[in-house]
Design a protein around this nucleic acid. Structure first.
Ligand code: FES
Ligand code: FES
Lengths: 144, 144
DNA sequence: ATAAATTAGGACAATTTTGTCCGATTTAAT
DNA sequence: ATTAAATCGGACAAAATTGTCCTAATTTAT
């Protein structure tokens, strides 16, 4: 579904959001630990997210990553996915034709666009804030 | 969503089904041409499908691939996907945790399983026969 | 000023996926 | 029997993705 980079990106964003809500900034090292991801690879993903204004990175000693409270409730899951995986999720054809195209549809087009519309709807209606709920009470997990 | 191998596999199966309904067997070369896929790579995918009894391969001169009429209406899209991509579609976690697990869910689990259930339902309710409809009248395409 | 802790970024390496090549095997036609 | 047309299967190659390493730059604390 999503690339590894994107999966790490989402998990990282959720963790940063969680800690930002608690008022603390987190380091790359801590993030990678808490979401169980390769440190250096996660660094690249975070750079990408930082460039796309999903997370804010602060350099130097006592630096790290954070997300403003306002952004936590504004940023949609769809934005994170788009920042890393681009719009393949939306524009790709289920059978791999150059581009999904209703004028010259593939044999699964009609069935596929329905599923995708619901996926799109889900991604666009889920905020970072939504995804942090449940983590505190261990109703959900970012690693296992 | 699906791997390239799987995309080619689905398109190939649909084309073979189409021709089998017309009573003609098709060669690898013709398949690759009609679905616009790399010949040798498609051969591997067809071997896989043959081993999984999705398509029937006939060796030798005047050989090729075919699917029995009975199977065309029985084979589900889900079986083709499973034969090539395995069950990642069903068992994978949206955020990349080892395995989707309702007891220790990731933050998108509840939203994700819904989408997946609909995808699963679609894959399991779409037959090869369903996907051949529309191709003759060029209402749908296997290449562009 | 210096040291320590941190992110940024480039180069590289490993792995997986995708794709190619070629000889072996099978079958049908001559 | 020989030849031609086809799939099979192993080895290889290319490309994309995933992951690592190291140095530079930035900021804070001493
Ligand atoms: S054309 Fe294939 S999904 Fe739309
Ligand atoms: S645990 Fe992540 S989707 Fe089920």
């Amino acid at each position: 579904m999503f690339s590894k980079a994107c999966e790490y990106g989402i998990r990282a964003s959720i963790y940063i959001a969680l800690k930002s809500l608690e008022g603390t900034r987190v380091s790359l090292k801590e993030i990678a630990e808490k979401i169980d991801s390769p440190v250096a690879f996660t660094a690249k993903v975070l750079q990408q997210l930082s460039k796309n204004d999903i997370v804010e990175s602060i350099k130097g000693s006592s630096g790290g990553f954070e997300i403003s409270k306002n952004n936590i409730s504004q940023i949609k899951l769809s934005q994170i996915v788009y920042a890393i995986d681009g719009n393949n999720v939306y524009e790709g054809c289920g059978l791999g034709l150059k581009r999904c195209n209703a004028k010259e549809p593939c044999p699964v087009h009609n069935r596929f666009v329905q599923i995708r519309a619901e996926l799109k709807n889900m991604l666009e209606s889920t905020t970072l804030y939504d995804m942090t709920m449940g983590l505190e009470q261990e109703l959900t997990y970012l690693r296992r």
